[in-house]
């Protein structure tokens, strides 16, 4: 049984079909990229896996469970926009996460804060977008989760911070855990990926090992993306 098993997943937002009988199997112990143009269903898929949206049809199983309270305990979600109040400091945010998530490792969080060169006592609203993103990543990756769902972790962030964030992800992902990252900045993220999934119109059009794709196509994942979606 794969860590994530999806059969015939469909989701409509009114008249818009966000996901269209999507099938997908993903195993743990790897970093997987989720790519596709806007509206291809990346965020919708992540939200459903994160149990933030239960109004779908089809079968979704996370470690054998339907998305809900039990799966929330083993998935760690990074939303596109921060869900933290901007008057909070990193220290306060750490305290909140520590309070609610049994798998939250404070020493990891402190380590990452240092790695990102952030002040624990600085308020979020006094930070740049890149710094805020780093705080979010720090919180999400400091949980010892089985699945990390990251929605555009490096978009809208300066290039130097991007490298830093990607290193943060590499460093914290556990050996058996799955990191599912959605992004449209493929060239920045490709060296970090084990596998890549391409979505289009709510379906999976490709799911391949990164190096295998490079060997077969003689192209970078980014070039393949441009060619496929041309």
């Amino acid at each position: 049984m794969s860590l994530i098993e999806i059969r015939g997943l469909s989701k409509n937002y009114g008249h818009v079909r966000a996901l269209d009988y999507l099938d997908l199997n993903v195993d743990g112990g790897r970093i997987v990229g989720l790519a596709g143009p806007n509206g291809s269903g990346k965020t919708t898929l992540l939200r459903i896996l994160g149990a933030f949206d239960t109004a779908y049809s089809g079968d979704v199983s996370i470690d054998g469970l339907k998305p809900g309270r039990e799966t929330r305990a083993i998935t760690s979600y990074l939303p596109e926009k921060t869900a933290l109040s901007d008057w909070m400091t990193a220290d306060q945010a750490i305290a909140v996460y520590k309070d609610f998530f049994a798998d939250f490792k404070e020493d990891r969080a402190r380590e990452m804060l240092e790695f990102f060169k952030l002040e624990g006592s600085q308020k979020l609203r006094q930070m740049s977008k890149g710094m805020q993103e780093k705080v979010q990543i720090m919180l999400v990756m400091s949980r010892d989760a089985r699945i990390y769902l990251l929605d555009e972790p490096i978009s809208g962030v300066d290039p130097a911070s991007r490298k830093s964030i990607l290193r943060g992800i590499i460093g914290q992902a556990g050996e058996d855990s799955l990191v599912l990252v959605s992004t449209h900045l493929i060239s920045d993220i490709e060296p970090v990926l084990d596998e890549i999934i391409f979505l289009d119109f709510g379906r999976v059009i490709l799911h391949e090992q990164a190096d295998k794709m490079r060997a077969e196509r003689g192209q970078s994942l980014n070039e393949a993306f441009e060619e496929i979606y041309a």
């Binding site: 994160g50 149990a51 933030f52 309270r69 039990e70 929330r72 305990a73 998935t75 760690s76 979600y77 939303p79 926009k81 869900a83 933290l84 109040s85 909140v96 609610f100 998530f101």
Partner: peptide, 13 residues
Amino acid sequence: GKRGYLFRSIPAK
């Protein structure tokens, strides 16, 4: 709303 991604990720009954 805004803080939904935090609150709804908490594994509470």
